[in-house]
């Protein structure tokens, strides 16, 4: 069996053995469910449109908070408890370990999204439903999660304190989520262009509307891979 998969499996099991997985699932489904169905102002019934637009934008924000909570321990705890030494003195390369950790967090988010499939099924029966846009929206959420996990993993790789990893991931997330967009809209010329490209929200907006553009996919994947690559680099530099 591939070490990456063995590590991912163990990590996923440890999410479910501690309360982490359950708290996150309940909170994620609670938030997104409330705003999709019950909040009154802006929910599916208020807008009288059978789509998951509200869900996608709320899920985006919820994941922005929750993914750092999932990723903060991935590498920081291994470093603190010394178990990283056990992993890396076996036939496991730095990359395999980092990928395993990434995969575990990604699967955790995928499981959370899987639980929202009932939203999809119920809303689709309510009216004229755009299946393509919804599937594209889900794809967008998965890509967005991959990018956030990359950022979170990197934050977790440079410290052995989970709180620091969490806050740093959140800080970097704020940049991608809000700051770059704000800078772009308040400047002009190539600066605006650059920050527009960097802003995560722009890319997510178009994909959640059902426009699958290779530019957006490449953007999310590059952020994710950059995170993985930098984590691997940091882990490889250990003294």
């Amino acid at each position: 069996m591939n070490p990456t998969w063995i590590i991912a499996k163990r990590e996923l099991a440890s999410f479910f053995n501690s309360l982490v997985a359950y708290i996150l699932l309940i909170a994620f489904l609670g938030f997104t469910g409330f705003f999709t169905w019950l909040s009154g102002n802006g929910d599916v019934f208020f807008r009288k449109q059978a789509d998951l637009k509200v869900f996608f934008s709320i899920a985006n924000l919820t994941l922005f908070f929750f993914i750092p909570a999932i990723t903060m321990r991935l590498l920081a705890e291994e470093k603190k408890s010394g178990t990283m030494e056990l992993l890396l003195t076996k036939d496991v390369s730095n990359r395999q370990m980092v990928l395993g950790k990434f995969l575990s967090a990604f699967l955790m988010v995928a499981i959370a999204l899987l639980f929202t499939i009932p939203y999809y099924i119920t809303v689709s029966t309510l009216g004229n439903f755009d299946h393509g846009a919804t599937i594209s929206g889900y794809l967008g959420l998965l890509l967005l999660s991959a990018a956030y996990i990359g950022v979170g993993l990197f934050a977790s790789s440079i410290t052995n304190n989970q709180i620091v990893a969490f806050l740093l991931a959140l800080l970097l997330g704020v940049m991608f989520q809000f700051l770059f967009g704000i800078i772009a809209s308040s400047s002009s010329g190539w600066v605006a262009e650059l920050f527009n490209t960097l802003s995560l929200n722009n890319h997510f907006d178009s994909i959640s509307r059902g426009v699958i553009d290779s530019k957006d996919i490449i953007y999310f994947l590059s952020v994710a891979f950059l995170g993985i690559f930098l984590s691997e680099y940091v882990i490889g530099k250990r003294k």
């Binding site: 069996m1 010394g82 056990l86 992993l87 003195t89 076996k90 036939d91």
Partner: peptide
């Protein structure tokens, strides 16, 4: 290798942990 301070995954049962180690090796 048995490292100094013997780090282990605290939350795992002994059997599961040994299985994990065996698979990784």
């Amino acid at each position: 290798y048995l490292p100094e301070h013997n780090p282990l995954y605290e939350e795992m049962p002994v059997m599961d942990y040994l299985k994990f180690a065996a698979e990784l090796q």
